[in-house]
Computed example of a mutant assay.
Amino acid sequence: MKSVTSLLLALALLLVAAGCGGNNSGNNEPSASPSPSASPSESSEPSASASPSASESPQQLTKVKFSEVIRSIFYAPHYVAMSQGFFEKQGLEVDMNTAQGSDKGAAALIAGTADISMVGPETAIYIHNQKGDKTLKIFYQLTLKDGSFLLSREKLDSFKWTDLTGKKIIGWRPGSAPQMVMNSTLIKEKAEGADVVTNIAAPAMAGAFASGQGDFIQLFEPVASTLIKEGKAYYVASLGEAFGKFPETSYVATSDYIAKNPDVIQRFANAVSEGTKWLSTASDEEIAKALKPFFDGTPDDIIIQSIKRYKDQDTWPAKPELTAEQFETLQSVLIENGVLKPEEKLGDMSAVVDMSFVNKIGAAG
């Protein structure tokens, strides 16, 4: 626990120093198209401050500095809200950058370089237990399943989780949500002796696997489907389906920002909710077109396949609410993985959760 909080504090101090340097515009420059050597967050990041029709809108937009944890189709409702103009409809201009980790996204909030971050909800618990000057509040639960998939080097006719015993799995950094979900799934399935590698940087994971490292790999979309399409891996299982409901990704802001800008938080929640609803009814062609600007170079069939995988496992809840039951699951996983001590468990979730904005989505006015 100390290592997690120390890292957040260190990052916060670094970001305070860096925050004086400008808008970090380098995060908005296009990068190479997704490939097996790229993480989900390495796909093209267009100028994310406005939707296509922003220049036509006469209204004054409120700018929101937004930090996403990584770039992945796992967060499709957010990109839809941007590309379809739902944020603009709510009077918001979203200036987006990619943090490359929940720890960094939380640090950006503490440092003031982000107004809203898309991170793992556990970060709010970590910050609360530090008892510092700032606290974080979860105001919207974007996903209710883990978003990673297990792939194998060799094609398997059948798969049991115990098949991972003695095998090397390229996984995510220690303390990250996908790493903890993987570990808890291995415990639940009694797959003892699996060697999970957690020291390969996210952008290098798929490339390491393609070059011969590991027997299995845990990846998000669209990188998972890209690796499969290129014949370098085979689909094995969904961690989301294997583990079950888990509140992996939330929208979070500081308590101070929420108190000062409740209308911005409400409008932000409204826009993302509209993005989720749009995804449930749009055609494959419409979805591919909407997401393409955020995954430049990714073929339409990969985008469509990625969306199908996430829809099939009920990733995006119709009501984006973090419930008491889900909060209990989250804290149990944190304790099981040794990043939260039992005595640090929060008895009152309202200390870090505010679902009042979710409950007002769609209300008149």
Rank of each mutant, 00 (worst) to 15 (best):
A259C: 06
I169G: 01
I170Y: 06
M182S: 08
K232D: 01
W278R: 14
I265A: 02
P178Q: 14
K232V: 04
R267S: 12
K190I: 11
E221V: 11
E248C: 14
G240S: 06
S184T: 14
K188G: 01
K277T: 11
K245D: 14
G244I: 12
S184P: 01
T276R: 15
I169P: 10
V236E: 03
L186T: 06
A224S: 11
A191P: 12
M180T: 03
E230L: 12
G171D: 08
S255M: 08
E274F: 05
S176F: 13
A282T: 05
G231I: 06
W172R: 08
E230R: 12
D284K: 06
R173W: 13
T198C: 08
L186Q: 03
T254C: 05
A204V: 08
F243C: 13
R267L: 13
I200W: 01
T226H: 10
S176Y: 13
A253P: 04
I170V: 14
K188T: 02
G275M: 03
T198R: 08
V196M: 14
F216C: 00
A253G: 05
S283G: 14
L186H: 03
A259M: 06
A253V: 04
I170H: 01
I258K: 00
G275K: 11
Q213A: 12
S273Y: 02
G171C: 09
F246H: 11
Y234N: 02
E248D: 10
G193L: 08
M182W: 14
P174C: 05
A237M: 05
V272L: 07
G212F: 03
A253M: 05
S250H: 10
V196E: 15
V272R: 02
K168W: 08
V223T: 14
E189F: 05
K190A: 15
Y235C: 04
A271W: 00
V197L: 09
A242L: 03
G275Q: 12
T281K: 10
N183K: 15
A201G: 10
A208E: 09
T198F: 04
G207P: 04
A282D: 15
G171M: 05
P203G: 11
T254N: 01
A259V: 01
V223G: 03
A204P: 01
M180V: 06
T198D: 11
A259L: 07
N183T: 11
Q213I: 10
N199P: 10
I200H: 03
I187P: 00
K277P: 06
I265W: 00
R173V: 14
F246S: 15
S184F: 03
A242C: 10
A237F: 05
T185M: 08
K245R: 13
D256H: 07
E274M: 13
G231H: 09
Y235E: 08
I187L: 11
D284M: 01
K188V: 01
E192D: 15
S283H: 15
F243D: 12
V196K: 12
L186Y: 00
K232Y: 08
Q266F: 09
K229I: 04
P222L: 06
T281G: 12
E230S: 09
G275P: 03
K188F: 01
I170M: 02
F246K: 09
T226E: 04
S273L: 13
G212R: 04
T198V: 13
A271E: 02
I200Y: 01
I200G: 01
A259G: 10
I169W: 05
F209C: 00
S225C: 11
A271V: 05
I265Q: 00
L239M: 13
Y235R: 04
I187V: 15
Q179F: 07
I169C: 04
V236S: 04
D256F: 02
T198N: 10
